[in-house]
Simulated assay, not measured.
Amino acid sequence: MFDNLDEELKATVHAWESRPGGWQTLQLDSGTWDEADLPALVEWSRAPACVAEVSDSSLALVAGLNTAGERWQAWLNLDNAARLLTEEPEDLEDQLLWLDTPEFHEAVRYKRAELDAEIPTDAGGAIAWTAAAGIPVAPQKAEIEELLRSHETFAEDLFSTLLDRLGFPQAT
């Protein structure tokens, strides 16, 4: 997949954490990854793949896909994800004023509760993906759910910890 990239795009791909057992973790510059790239990566590598789209280190949307086409996704840092996903009123005149209203904070609490309710399903999907990836250590669902509810500041750290808790070899 990466062999077919033009040189300019290839320059946006950087090695990140090295993990034993042939697992590769790459970092791509912002704006170079598209959701449609995940199936292509799985097809190219013939192995399950996972991607975390990180936004300003404050949140990430993690998606995994196995070779059977089974997909899962989860947000890291639900508080920030809820703020991002909260819909603005149609008659909004000034976004900055909206952000400081009780209505905004209530809408964020509601969205946060929606995201939190999805965590058991998200954790189950991540665990099934891990099994399909051939990881011999069975992750503890409660630990994955706890991590998905974490308030850790840096989404990159949360993603690395998620891979660790899913049983992937520790990064070196």
Score class of each variant (00 low, 15 high):
residue 3 D to H: 03
residue 42 V to G: 08
residue 125 G to Q: 07
residue 99 L to F: 15
residue 113 A to H: 03
residue 78 L to D: 01
residue 45 S to T: 15
residue 168 F to D: 07
residue 87 E to L: 15
residue 72 W to C: 12
residue 161 T to M: 10
residue 119 I to E: 03
residue 96 L to I: 08
residue 123 A to Y: 03
residue 7 E to I: 07
residue 122 D to R: 01
residue 170 Q to N: 10
residue 142 A to M: 06
residue 58 S to N: 13
residue 47 A to R: 14
residue 153 T to C: 04
residue 21 G to N: 12
residue 25 T to N: 10
residue 131 A to G: 06
residue 24 Q to I: 12
residue 84 L to H: 12
residue 41 L to N: 04
residue 50 C to T: 09
residue 8 E to L: 11
residue 54 V to A: 03
residue 68 A to S: 14
residue 151 H to C: 01
residue 138 A to D: 09
residue 162 L to Q: 11
residue 13 V to L: 13
residue 73 Q to H: 13
residue 163 L to C: 05
residue 27 Q to K: 13
residue 17 E to Q: 13
residue 161 T to F: 00
residue 56 D to N: 12
residue 21 G to V: 03
residue 17 E to P: 00
residue 131 A to K: 13
residue 147 L to S: 07
residue 38 L to F: 06
residue 62 V to T: 05
residue 133 A to T: 03
residue 42 V to E: 05
residue 32 T to N: 13
residue 73 Q to P: 01
residue 117 A to T: 06
residue 31 G to D: 05
residue 16 W to A: 15
residue 27 Q to D: 00
residue 4 N to T: 09
residue 86 T to L: 05
residue 114 E to V: 08
residue 16 W to D: 15
residue 140 Q to N: 12
residue 10 K to A: 15
residue 85 L to T: 03
residue 40 A to F: 07
residue 67 T to A: 06
residue 118 E to F: 00
residue 58 S to G: 11
residue 53 E to D: 06
residue 81 A to W: 01
residue 152 E to S: 06
residue 44 W to D: 14
residue 62 V to W: 02
residue 133 A to E: 04
residue 144 I to E: 01
residue 37 D to G: 05
residue 146 E to I: 00
residue 4 N to P: 04
residue 43 E to G: 05
residue 52 A to G: 11
residue 83 R to D: 08
residue 8 E to R: 14
residue 98 W to P: 10
residue 128 A to C: 08
residue 41 L to R: 07
residue 34 D to T: 10
residue 171 A to F: 11
residue 161 T to E: 15
residue 45 S to N: 11
residue 69 G to A: 07
residue 96 L to C: 01
residue 39 P to H: 09
residue 171 A to K: 15
residue 103 E to S: 15
residue 126 A to L: 12
residue 92 L to A: 05
residue 5 L to R: 02
residue 20 P to F: 00
residue 80 N to E: 15
residue 119 I to D: 02
residue 41 L to Q: 11
residue 65 L to A: 03
residue 160 S to M: 10
residue 92 L to Y: 06
residue 135 I to F: 09
residue 20 P to H: 00
residue 49 A to K: 00
residue 65 L to H: 00
residue 85 L to Q: 14
residue 36 A to N: 11
residue 80 N to V: 13
residue 111 K to Q: 15
residue 144 I to S: 04
residue 73 Q to D: 14
residue 115 L to T: 02
residue 16 W to I: 02
residue 108 V to A: 03
residue 159 F to T: 02
residue 126 A to G: 04
residue 60 A to W: 04
residue 140 Q to K: 14
residue 3 D to S: 08
residue 23 W to L: 03
residue 11 A to Q: 07
residue 82 A to M: 05
residue 153 T to Y: 12
residue 153 T to G: 14
residue 113 A to V: 01
residue 52 A to H: 04
residue 60 A to G: 03
residue 114 E to A: 09
residue 117 A to M: 07
residue 60 A to I: 05
residue 58 S to K: 13
residue 108 V to N: 05
residue 112 R to G: 02
residue 83 R to A: 10
residue 17 E to W: 07
residue 98 W to C: 08
